[in-house]
Design a protein around this nucleic acid. Sequence first.
RNA 1: GUGGAUGUGGCGAAGCGGUUAACGCACCGGAUUGUGGCUCCGGCACCCGAGGGUUCAAAUCCCUUCAUCCACCCCA
Length: 425
Amino acid sequence: MLTTRPRGTNDILPGETEKWHYVEKVLREICMEFDYQEIRFPIFEHTELFQRGVGETTDIVEKEMYTFLDRGQRSITLRPEGTASTVRAYLEHKLYALPQPVKMYYIGPMFRYERPQAGRYRQFHQFGVEVFGSFDPAIDAEVIALAMNFYHRLGLKGLELRLNSVGCPNCRPKHRETLQSFLEKDLHRLCRDCQGRYERNPLRILDCKNNQCREITAGAPTVLGSLCPECREHFEAVKEYLDEAGIRYLIDDRLVRGLDYYTKTAFEIIVNEIGAQSAICGGGRYDGLVESLGGPPIPGVGFALGMERIFPALESQGISIPLENQLDVYVIALGKAADRKAFQILLNLRLEGIKADKDYLRRSLKAQLKTAHRHNVKYALIFGENELEKGTVILRFMETSKQKEMPVDEALDLIRKQMDKKIKM
RNA sequence: GUGGAUGUGGCGAAGCGGUUAACGCACCGGAUUGUGGCUCCGGCACCCGAGGGUUCAAAUCCCUUCAUCCACCCCA
């Protein structure tokens, strides 16, 4: 136990963190271009925020939250998603007083108590964006474009954007009723889960994977069919913006997001390479959420995407991430006195921005050269007792196995020049 | 929460009741004096996830437990 990480958590080790950095860099770049600013909110919040914000009937709240009492007997929950916190911060700091819309993004760990599986962990990382204060369908499209743009930049292919509208408090009750009366006669034939959903959230029956349920719901009335004029118009406009932007999508009138707060636009991005978890991004509009958390009636749109699901997708598509952690110089010393000198030179190289390292195990020249080789370094600087006396150093070109003894300054100059050249290329 | 698979050194992987637990990779050291990548040699598991049991004898059989993976549910 002592040396085992908690179930469903992961160590991201050296060699892997570089990949994360790259993906995060791409995300931040895009956000800058799209004019979204980062928000950082707490890892834990008052439990009530998620109960109210995510929805009492959702799986997250019912069975997946990491909830505990702190020493002051307050109920605290590790954040299972980012939207609720973003809304809370927006209200707490009265960001509605700013020019609207307010466009924000976040990136960081989320926590859900679930059985781990391919692409699903108890601590996982999400990047998400939230936009407050605009009803404009164009902002729905912008948010979707941002996500698609990101995946394209990484080089991912075969993405599928699924689009739906789940209506609003005006049209949803009507649809709910027609759906319930459609299902009523077959209620007993539905799977157990769906029988439970019938009252609580009949919309989700449409999303059930059970064969018999699918059969029963085959001709069920769709949400799209009973949208009110306003929702219909909004949906059409979102589609037009996407068409205009050349973003292809698939209408999926069965797409229901698992969280209670969605209205109108709902979307998911799917890629078939990460086991059973094919959704890499999900989001939509939540026009009622801000108000339901005690704020003014301010609309919102956003999405969240799972970082962990990106990497297996990239890998199975043979996309490698460009890494730039290449060491430039390896400094080798033989003997105590030379080692002192080598250490000083090493530090100076680094001050000049040259990536350099040395041996710290007092190993033989042979072993040190081996290490230099392993680092795939271009230059090795070799200091021995002889060179130390003469004030020289051996500059070895690892690729050609050629080397030359010269004054220390001369060798450093040579390396500097080579590095400059590299930067210019 | 349910179901299936798996658990042998850092990694991959043999062994499936009987002396000192193969092998490959990685790692470390060496092959005459201060030199890498190839080759050769050597080193690296008081122990087979943990606990208990059966047996003269278990990594190998049984039970329990834990963990990992995959799937269901649901989601990112």
